[in-house]
């Protein structure tokens, strides 16, 4: 991977989705169907129990932000879509990197590199160490290139999570209907 200080050609989209089985499948199916190339896709909980939040980074070769958002919005279980690409936002990727550290030199080198980045060694043994690095996608990529010469033996990245900056709150009041055993749906919250 080459160092990309400012990754262009990527679209970052956030989707609030109903926390239901099959929703991830619908989104994956949509992206495959429309031949959108997904760079990373993360799903996580929000402060609302029935709402999950996805951060999706798409290659812009066959897609543009409007296209991605318009198609995602067509899915019934997608409550809302926000395009972050041209908005000030914070984005974070996390990498766990297992590096060979079987001599004093490499251990020292690793410590020195980690001091220059928001990275820390989270596990160390006689043969290998695990480093955790958090930052923007590009920053993590840069760090990886720094440690690569030491010998990476295993690595995983979470993919990007992102959030717009400032007071433009991106949230939904969504609550699913409640099905009572002796009646039809009761809405606890109507939007």
């Amino acid at each position: 991977m080459t160092i990309q200080p400012n990754p262009t050609g990527k679209i970052t989209v956030v989707a609030l989705v109903e926390n239901k089985p099959g929703v991830l499948n619908r989104i994956a199916s949509l992206f495959r169907r429309r031949a959108f190339n997904v760079d990373s896709l993360t799903v996580g909980r929000t402060h609302r129990p029935h709402v999950s939040r996805m951060t999706i980074v798409v290659d812009s070769e066959r897609a543009n932000p409007h296209k991605v958002a318009a198609n995602l919005s067509k899915l019934i279980n997608v409550i809302d879509v926000q395009i972050l690409t041209n908005m000030p936002h914070i984005s974070r990727d996390l990498a766990l990197i297992k590096v060979r550290t079987d001599d004093a030199d490499s251990r020292n080198n690793l410590t020195e590199i980690c001091d220059l980045y928001p990275a820390r060694i989270v596990d160390i043994g006689p043969e290998v160490a695990i480093v955790e690095m958090i930052g923007t996608e590009a920053y993590v990529a840069e760090f990886i290139e720094r440690v690569r010469p030491l010998g990476i033996v295993e690595m995983v990245r979470t993919g990007v999570v992102a959030m717009g900056r400032g007071t433009r709150i991106y949230d939904t009041e969504y609550e699913p209907p409640v099905f009572t055993k002796n009646g039809a749906a009761k809405h606890t919250n109507v939007i």
Partner: peptide, 12 residues
Amino acid sequence: FIYPEDDIHLPG
């Protein structure tokens, strides 16, 4: 069986 008469609520 209670037919859901009230409107549909599909936030998405």
